[in-house]
């Protein structure tokens, strides 16, 4: 639970962010529809969606802030808490589990030295599990930030993490 006293200062979309939003405004009959896109931009620009970021989005779109909060906490892809630079998301749904997602997860936990839900000390990696990401035919898989990594093996993971450092 966070303080509801909002320090509004320090939250403002970049010019590009604002432009994207303004452009999108033309695509919808109601600006409420921009809430999800605006939250993405806010997350991208402010790192995560804390109360200030949510309040800012509410102000920009003229949507009640409680509504913005309700929406941001409904969807799994919005982060209301800070995460590491690389968000490692391991699919543990059935198809991936059948092909060893648990093992992959354990391997990552050991390798990163953290448990699921935690962030490494250097704030580089946060490890979480996710539900099916639509890569069941190339299981097991994980998504790091926006990128899919499929047909995972231990060696593959070593290489991927190396590339992310």
């Amino acid at each position: 639970m966070e303080d509801t006293n909002i320090e509004k200062k320090g939250y403002a979309f970049s010019k590009e962010g604002m432009n994207i939003l303004k452009e999108m405004m033309k695509d919808y009959p109601s600006s409420d529809a921009l809430l999800l896109p605006a939250l993405y931009i806010a997350q991208e620009e402010f790192g995560h969606l804390d109360s200030g970021a949510l309040q800012y989005v509410a102000d920009v779109l003229k949507v009640p802030r409680s509504k913005v909060f309700g929406v941001a906490t409904y969807y799994t892809m919005y982060k209301t808490k800070p995460t590491g630079k690389h968000l490692v998301q391991v699919c543990t749904n059935l198809s991936c589990s059948l092909l060893g997602a648990d093992h992959i997860l354990k391997y990552l936990e050991n390798k990163l030295g953290i448990k699921v839900g935690e962030t490494t000390h250097d704030k580089k990696f946060t490890l979480i599990t996710v539900e099916c990401l639509g890569s069941c035919g190339t299981a097991p898989m994980m998504q790091v930030n926006d990128t899919y990594y499929e047909n995972l093996t231990e060696e593959g993971i070593d290489r991927i993490l190396e590339g992310l450092k």
Binding site: M1, D3, T4, R65, F69, T73
Partner: peptide, 15 residues
């Protein structure tokens, strides 16, 4: 706010 069985009700930020 939140989803499913974690759904709660409250003002902004669940304050």
């Amino acid at each position: 706010y939140n989803r499913g069985s974690h759904t709660e009700i409250g003002p902004f930020m669940g304050g």
